[in-house]
Design a protein around this nucleic acid. Structure first.
Lengths: 133, 133
DNA sequence: CTGGGTGCAAAGTATTTGCATGAAC
DNA sequence: GTTCATGCAAATACTTTGCACCCAG
């Protein structure tokens, strides 16, 4: 278990117990929706407010401490900011897994056939995970 | 201008004036958010209901007549279902453009490093469009 | 201390639903 | 004629805001 106190402060976020718990939960679970995160936090803080979850998620995103992952046909999940990576989603159980894929070639290809100045690539692969197969 | 009557029927959708107008709007504009689509439809049908927009968008998605495009840091937009393609989004003006990129190599790469059975790849590239540069 | 975070309640926004009427086929 | 779509209003879901109190630094 990592202590996220310093990590939060580096991102200009006070290290409150709620924020530390959110950080831990994301670290342990990898990716969580607002709803699931709230349910989990309720077990730790029996009177935590959904508003606190939203305020923290939004602030943590603004400060690049976490990131939102938008998934086709599903609710968004959130994850701690890591080095660039893509996502694999199970269409059956919703499980989300990180996968490191080099997208530079893809970006170069896109640059050549468009007039955009491209700087980011967001890839979400869908399929069926091992458990659900 | 295309007449979408037959196209709608092929997808088990009755060809109502509202649906034909939505189809035309998507054809002309390429990608539209619920809000923008509603504003546009209001010009044609002064008493169209937002509920009608939602019901149609949802039904058209279920019947694969249209698809949702989820974009990082922005609202979803919808487009007529076409052959597989990726999207380019301008971070400055929000403009969305189609781009055809072969993702098979990427999918193969992902298959090798994960235990998922992968069947779809969803790619959204971000940058700055020609106008905004 | 002091600024910012928390919980609660209320407000705001987004989306869905039920139902009577009307249109597509 | 029958089925399904539309518009309206109400309901539900989701997210944000305001404020009094409290805690991290």
């Amino acid at each position: 278990m990592i202590n996220y106190t310093d990590e939060l402060r580096k991102h200009n976020l006070k290290a409150t117990p709620q924020r530390l718990a959110i950080s831990d939960a994301l670290y342990i679970n990898g990716h969580m929706s607002i709803e699931v995160l709230y349910e989990l936090m309720l077990k730790k803080f029996n009177s935590i407010s959904l508003a606190t979850i939203y305020k923290n998620i939004n602030l943590m995103m603004e400060n690049s401490f976490i990131q939102e992952v938008k998934i086709p046909n599903a609710k968004s999940v959130y994850e701690l900011t890591k080095t660039a990576h893509s996502h694999l989603v199970c269409d059956s159980c919703g499980e989300v897994e990180d996968v490191t894929i080099d997208l530079d070639a893809i970006i170069d290809e896109a640059k050549q056939i468009s007039s955009f100045k491209i700087d980011k690539a967001n890839l979400v692969l869908s399929g069926v995970c091992k458990n659900c197969q």
